[in-house]
């Protein structure tokens, strides 16, 4: 066999090893987490004071999780939560993106709104809870409001920052070629900041997913937060732990999905 034929083979092996290394390390990370969890369970089980919580250990939890997956409970409890988070994010984007563009484009509006918005951003979204409960007829409405309050800031600020980074030459070129305001928005501004918006959505999703569980301790009788609360009240600890795992997995998957879209939409190419 000639040397030339061997080079690509060698290169291919390096490449596949490179891919495998990431996967292997990821699996080791998961194994480490499971090991720590298992160790914690062992300590709890052997401590007479904590013995009642032994069902938090991986084995009962994962067994329970499997039965919850089979019975469809996982879907029925995460469905309403996903709906609330989705709605909250939609409202947050519907407000955050246009206002962010306005702030990014008009220095005067930026100056006017900066202090109030930074102030409101620092308020924990959960402190709006009493107001939300009073202002909305339904528990669902209040929860969606809380999620939107948490999600709006990352989207708004990320959008505004993206708009400020737009190369002014692009706008000049577009104006020069006869672009009207709608083309400016649709063909220059939005494509230029699409990635910034999505990065804002990704951050917002993280915050929203964190706020969701305590928000669902409110009145509602569905969703992941309710399931946690309910499991605690009924001392159903393996179900509680299984729900925590479900929350983690869904959050991870959502973040990864948005991350993939960001990567796909990102137009920045490395210089070469």
């Amino acid at each position: 066999m000639s040397d030339a034929a061997q080079i690509p083979q060698f290169a291919f092996r390096l490449w596949s090893l490179g891919r495998a290394r990431g996967l292997v390390n990821g699996l080791i990370g998961i194994a480490l987490l499971l090991g720590l969890w298992w160790l914690g369970g062992l300590i709890v089980a052997n401590d007479p004071d904590l013995y009642a919580f032994a069902n938090f250990a991986p084995e009962p939890t994962l067994k329970r999780l499997w039965s919850m997956v089979l019975s469809g409970e996982v879907i029925s409890m995460s469905g309403p939560s996903l709906e609330r988070v989705g709605l909250g994010l939609i409202y947050a984007a519907a407000f955050g993106v246009p206002v962010g563009i306005l702030i990014g484009r008009a220095p005067r509006i930026h100056e006017l709104t900066n202090v109030p918005f930074q102030f409101m951003r620092m308020i924990s979204p959960l402190s709006w809870m009493p107001i939300a409960v009073m202002a909305f007829d339904t528990w669902d409405g209040a929860i969606v409001f809380l999620i939107a309050m948490a999600a709006v800031w990352p989207i708004l600020f990320s959008t505004a920052a993206g708009v400020r980074r737009i190369d002014p030459a692009w706008l000049k070129v577009a104006r020069n070629l006869g672009a009207g305001p709608l083309h400016m928005l649709g063909s220059v501004i939005l494509p230029a900041i699409a990635v910034d918006i999505l990065q804002g959505v990704r951050l917002a999703l993280g915050v929203a997913w964190v706020v969701l569980v305590p928000a669902e301790y409110l009145g509602v009788t569905s969703g992941l937060g309710f399931a946690i609360n309910d499991a605690r009240d009924t001392l159903d600890y393996d179900r509680l732990a299984a729900t925590v795992v479900v929350i983690g997995i869904i959050g991870f998957a959502l973040d990864a999905a948005v991350g993939r879209i960001v990567k796909k939409l990102n137009w920045v190419r490395a210089a070469h």
Binding site: N176, L177, W267, R269
Partner: peptide, 25 residues
């Protein structure tokens, strides 16, 4: 139409799409 010192192409578009901007607008 004015041409500037920097080409200022839209990096999210292909060459053909960039060239077509004026027609689109």
């Amino acid at each position: 139409v004015m041409m500037f010192q920097a080409p200022s192409l839209f990096p999210w578009l292909s060459v053909a799409q960039n060239a077509a901007l004026g027609l689109k607008f």
